[in-house]
Amino acid sequence: MIETQPMPEDTVGRLYGELRRMAADFEFRPSERLNESRLALRLGASRTPLREALNRLVAEGFLDFRSGQGFFCRALSPEGIFHLYEARAAIECAALGAAIDRAEDAAIAGLAAYLDRTEGAYDRSTDPVELLEMDEGFHVRLCALAGNPEFDSMLSNVNGRIRYVRSIDLKQMRASGAVTERMSAHRRVLQLLIARDKTAAMDAMRAHIEKRRDQATEAVRLAFADIYAPREGAE
């Protein structure tokens, strides 16, 4: 078999995916300048596709670009996290309202089956990454019921930019025993969706998201403590 070199778009896509993960997980520290030469060597890429991938992440809000200085990791601040939660609430409430108007009963039943499958595991899990995947899984599936791919795209962007702080927040919530309450909020939203009670459902969704939004300062403090904690194996 003759091996072929990946097309440029394949290379950019691979770099984009890896860099997006690194940015979302704050492997680059907040407001840190990125060393393009070091990144190119680490990722086995030339500067041209690397820069294209970096520019995509700037457009999506994962990185910043400063003329004459280069690419920087996005800042991490309570105000920024507050704004992301506010955007998330707006997107998800709009999607929920559309889902109540448009979604077939069978599609809503599929969301209910997902919650039934994951609720027990969510209550038992101590892994913040696993908790976040299950939590996002519910919200992403609910958003998809609206049948509007623009909602899906916008929610994916916000989720990616807020994911690290949310994982730290969920870790703290698990330690305090508040995670079970979070899943019960999903059950409440689902019940109102099934009842097609748009006003009450949107109010419940907004309250569910804004409860964590109002803890943005503490969530960012915990995130900074985690980002700057001594890493295993570090000198």
Score class of each variant (00 low, 15 high):
residue 181 E to L: 12
residue 81 I to Y: 12
residue 130 E to V: 05
residue 196 R to M: 03
residue 135 D to R: 02
residue 26 F to R: 05
residue 144 A to Q: 11
residue 209 I to K: 02
residue 210 E to T: 12
residue 29 R to E: 15
residue 60 E to Q: 08
residue 61 G to T: 06
residue 189 V to Y: 02
residue 155 L to R: 10
residue 81 I to K: 09
residue 197 D to Y: 00
residue 99 A to T: 09
residue 4 T to S: 15
residue 91 I to L: 12
residue 120 G to M: 02
residue 72 F to I: 10
residue 191 Q to I: 10
residue 188 R to Y: 07
residue 137 G to F: 00
residue 144 A to N: 10
residue 96 L to D: 07
residue 76 L to M: 01
residue 128 P to C: 02
residue 106 A to R: 15
residue 75 A to E: 15
residue 195 A to M: 08
residue 50 L to C: 06
residue 159 N to P: 08
residue 16 Y to E: 04
residue 33 R to A: 02
residue 14 R to I: 08
residue 25 D to L: 05
residue 131 L to T: 04
residue 129 V to H: 11
residue 52 E to Y: 09
residue 85 Y to L: 03
residue 15 L to I: 09
residue 205 M to C: 06
residue 31 S to I: 11
residue 47 R to G: 10
residue 147 G to C: 09
residue 106 A to S: 15
residue 227 I to K: 03
residue 46 S to W: 10
residue 70 G to C: 03
residue 69 Q to P: 00
residue 9 E to L: 07
residue 185 A to I: 03
residue 56 R to I: 04
residue 142 L to P: 07
residue 28 F to S: 02
residue 11 T to D: 13
residue 177 G to R: 05
residue 195 A to N: 10
residue 183 M to V: 13
residue 140 V to P: 05
residue 85 Y to D: 04
residue 198 K to Q: 10
residue 37 S to E: 15
residue 78 P to F: 00
residue 175 A to M: 10
residue 168 I to W: 02
residue 60 E to V: 05
residue 203 D to R: 09
residue 179 V to H: 07
residue 18 E to Q: 14
residue 99 A to N: 08
residue 14 R to N: 10
residue 141 R to C: 01
residue 37 S to A: 13
residue 200 A to R: 12
residue 72 F to W: 07
residue 56 R to F: 01
residue 164 Y to H: 06
residue 207 A to T: 13
residue 8 P to R: 10
residue 13 G to N: 13
residue 56 R to G: 02
residue 164 Y to W: 05
residue 5 Q to Y: 14
residue 98 A to Q: 14
residue 52 E to F: 03
residue 178 A to W: 04
residue 109 A to I: 12
residue 203 D to Q: 13
residue 145 L to W: 05
residue 80 G to T: 08
residue 5 Q to P: 11
residue 19 L to C: 02
residue 131 L to S: 03
residue 107 A to C: 10
residue 59 A to G: 12
residue 232 E to Y: 08
residue 39 L to R: 11
residue 39 L to C: 08
residue 46 S to G: 15
residue 93 C to Q: 12
residue 133 E to W: 05
residue 100 I to A: 04
residue 67 S to C: 03
residue 91 I to V: 14
residue 126 T to V: 13
residue 173 M to S: 09
residue 124 R to P: 03
residue 28 F to I: 04
residue 205 M to A: 04
residue 228 Y to D: 11
residue 43 L to W: 10
residue 107 A to T: 14
residue 120 G to P: 01
residue 107 A to W: 10
residue 40 A to T: 09
residue 161 R to P: 00
residue 41 L to A: 11
residue 30 P to D: 06
residue 7 M to I: 14
residue 22 M to T: 08
residue 7 M to R: 14
residue 234 A to W: 14
residue 231 R to Q: 11
residue 75 A to P: 03
residue 135 D to H: 01
residue 107 A to F: 10
residue 231 R to Y: 07
residue 105 D to M: 13
residue 11 T to F: 06
residue 38 R to C: 07
residue 189 V to Q: 09
residue 84 L to A: 01
residue 5 Q to L: 13
